[in-house]
Amino acid sequence: MSTIQDISWIHLAFSFCILLIPFAGFWYYSVGLTRSTIIAITRMTIQLSAVAVNLEFIFEKNNTFLNIAWVMIMILVGVFTTLKRSNLNAKQLALPLIISGLTSLIIVDTFFLGFVIKLPYLFESQYFIPISGMILGNAMNHNIVGLNAYFEGLVNNQNLYYFLLLNGKSKKVAISPFIVKAIRKALNPMIANTSVMGLISLPGMMTGQILGGNSPAIAIRYQIMIMLAIFTGCTINLMLSIIIANIKAFDKMERIAVDVLTTNNS
């Protein structure tokens, strides 16, 4: 296998020219997305460049504390993005979500890095950071869908919750329709995506490994492992987020604490 062909900065800058085609389409149909696309691509370029500088440093040092600190930053960014995009109360729910993210990562990273890949050093930056990042990135997207569906469902359909609760069912039974709906809504797209992987989509990690010079056989094994890690990590993270957030979401008489859940504290 040959090593990857480098892209020079000039050639990378040249690659932005391809955007003229979608922009021409936006202009022709008056879509109004040109400005937001330019902002998004500029942000992506700056963020990835900054991350690249940081990761170069972190990978070079390969220091346990630094690696863990970087993953913690990823968890925090993921949690606050989730809370913001789900319109949930950050003050009340940040800690439950941080605990959930951290716990899911400890379980999944320990299992896959320690027992499947069998790394001699669990916090090896080359593995620990990208794999944790892939789990957290995916978990964030699914948590946004799942938590939004759960808490929005609970707040907007209080009638069903109270109907079950007041007719003598436990809180666990009364919230179960909302949990089932939220988990299905969050995980169904991932299950559908997993079932067509390799047929319709070639996943990023596998493509990256092949471009990096690894054999497709190794790339596929890693891809299968990462899909299992992502699925397990997302599921644990979402379920734990709901379970731990529920401690704050209900009062002693098991009434929904609407003000705790939403950013609107009226």
């Binding site: 109907f163 007719n167 003598g168 098991e254």
Partner: peptide
């Protein structure tokens, strides 16, 4: 109260007004 609410709710059958339970 907080300590008795579960037991009391187990004595009750409750039907709200405007039954929009989304079932």
């Amino acid at each position: 109260g907080d300590d008795t609410v579960k037991g009391i709710r187990s004595l009750i059958g409750y039907l709200p007004q405007g039954i929009d339970l989304l079932i």
